[in-house]
Design a protein around this nucleic acid. Structure first.
Lengths: 352, 352
DNA sequence: CAAGGGTACATTAACGCTATCTAACGAGGC
DNA sequence: GCCTCGTTAGATAGCGTTAATGTACCCTTG
């Protein structure tokens, strides 16, 4: 009994061939809908395959075809809604194209990223979509050397000269900044993370330009409030709000009273709201607030937070299509650098 | 030139063997740290492997070893923080054990789940962790027949007779219900999703028992407010809050004034807060509110929401360990059914 | 009815790796 | 100096599939 259950291995192509009295080759062609098999034999084979519960061995298949029909995704952390949206959409697109997705997490650490790259390299992937952690691009060269198509998202590594898709951070910050300036704000503070990422640099730059375009001076000491970088990326990002709360409280306690805040993360707005509320500073009457990310909870903040809808799904869609094109050799030689402009979501926090 | 770049395929074991003047066999043993190779040759081989950038071909390796060192995870949706935490932790544990993770999403649809199962079956996985969508267990039997170790999480399928790990829904609802009852609530409403899941049934049951243990009657018409089931699982779950807002508003507009709400999802609390605020019903003075899930934003709600910390990471940790044990044949024959008790997080919304 | 062409299947050979078995070699014991 | 034994490496086989090539056989055609 036990022998029957435990000892029965998965039926192979050979077993199937023997069962129908044909050779493995014919059976293979029949199942893969290739020519050279009569309709009746094909039907017979397929019926028998069904009956035996035959499942082709991917390992053997991958070996001979040189492909596993799998793409890898390296992101820091899927607790971040941006990345979970991104990964979800990649999975969906990949699925449509008959690919599966290998998930590799780097947890915002260079060593873990290196490890993820190594594992990607050893996983026989057909392609890789990655949001890099470090600015050092050399970690990725083995992927390129191995001939594995690579598409970057979210954070750019210009030296690598590979396709890149991202939300347009510069356009985004200009949208949010302009929105408060259009409502008459004259003294705006950008509350953002103190991290050496290109994304954050672009935001600061765009912010400065928006102010200057409106004839306002940009002074880092006055117009910038920096939230210390994240401590851990495992846990949910509520500490983002805590840190922002502290930074905003300090600023307000120093007597600073800007008439608008533009933040780099909706969670910062959460902390900022509390800091303002504790000091009876009213939103939007006394101060305008613009968020970043359109997190699901923002619509239910009090007052509802104006924010920026980031097109991460579209980023993922384009990146995946591009990757699949590269895998299938259908892509042109041009290296894509695509920044997708986000969308303003205006709610009460910025309306006066 | 182009020929050199494009034509150079990945070096194989044979290439490496030729380069060092040995056979593939010896090289294999050297690289895999098996006995039968002298220390000096081993070092020589490893150096040459490094120099050539040799990466073993997983396809061939998987074929001969019969394993891909990959486990699959099927969940409905990683936008749900519970599942993203779950998947993250599975990835972390798997990584430690030298496994990679294949992500398959079912989007809360039976057809997509079936598709995910098919793809899992055809992916040559060593094992599978899944949170099932449908209650029909037959979809999973091919996995079991194929001898792929399966561990279920979050939603149970008793007929399947496989290991199961979950947060303890019954204990959880009793914790939250008892918390408001202990603060003197006499008329409690459970605001939960109207879905035929075992998890939700268990919650309703536990809720009823908590009331009865405190000598209170349970009447579905009075003590239950049902939120219509989710429409789509692609997008973030802010509509959860919308739906809850509507249901709560209806209830309040019918003149019903319970002295406590216990909800099945923190997002419901978000909608509930708004409905209450609009009617000038104060939390916690007029009504106590208990959430479910300890989402990152709950600490920053006004007032901060008391809620339930769900030990999804622990669930993932145990499930993954069990799966790896099964894969490695180290598990006992006993089928595990493990419910991990959540933890109360008491904040202002339930304190009076 | 022989030549030609297509169909339907079989035979053989990879794909790149690991495992088992075998051979060569040098060291040590009597 | 012969035998034994342990160590190191080579030879061979096989994992399950697909691709390339071969070979019957039947049908058509002049």
């Amino acid at each position: 009994m036990a022998e029957v259950i435990k000892g029965r291995r998965q039926p192979t192509l050979q077993d199937l061939a023997k069962a129908v009295g044909l050779t493995a080759n014919t059976v293979s062609r029949a199942l893969n809908d290739k020519s050279g098999v009569s309709a009746t034999t094909r039907a017979l084979i397929k019926a028998e395959a069904e009956r035996l519960g035959y499942v082709p061995n991917v390992h053997a298949r991958s070996l001979v075809l040189g492909s596993r029909k799998t793409i890898g995704v390296i992101v820091t952390n899927i607790s971040n809604p941006f990345f979970s949206d991104l990964v979800s959409e990649v999975e969906l697109q990949a699925q449509h194209a008959g690919y599966t997705v290998l998930l590799l997490l780097s947890y915002e650490s260079a060593e873990r990223e290196q490890d993820a790259i190594d594992r990607a390299l050893r996983s026989g992937l057909d392609g890789l979509i990655a949001a890099p952690v470090q600015e050092r691009s050399t970690a990725w060269t083995p992927i390129i050397k191995a001939g594995i198509p690579l598409v970057l998202v979210s954070r750019e590594l210009p030296e690598l000269n590979v396709d890149f898709y991202s939300t347009d951070n510069e356009a985004g910050i200009q949208l949010t900044t302009d929105a408060v300036l259009a409502r008459g704000a004259k003294d705006v503070v950008l509350l953002d993370e103190d991290m050496p990422f290109s994304t954050i640099r672009l935001r600061t730059e765009g912010f400065r330009r928006s102010l200057e375009r409106h004839g306002l001076a940009f002074d880092p000491r006055n117009n910038l409030a920096l939230v210390p970088p994240a401590r851990s990326f495992r846990v949910s990002q509520s500490w983002h709000a805590d840190d922002a709360y502290r930074v905003a409280s300090d600023l307000l306690d120093r007597g600073r009273r800007p008439d608008a805040f533009v933040v780099g993360d909706d969670y910062y707005a959460l902390g900022l709201y509390r800091a303002l509320r504790e000091r009876n500073i009213r939103i939007p009457d006394d101060v305008l607030v613009m968020g970043w990310g359109n997190h699901p909870f923002t619509r239910f903040m009090e007052p509802p937070l104006s924010t920026l809808l980031l097109p991460f799904e579209e980023v993922a869609r384009r990146a995946t299509r591009r990757l699949l094109d590269r895998i299938q050799g259908k892509a042109d030689d041009r290296v894509v650098n695509d920044h997708i402009v986000p969308e303003l979501v205006i709610r009460a926090s910025s309306m006066r």
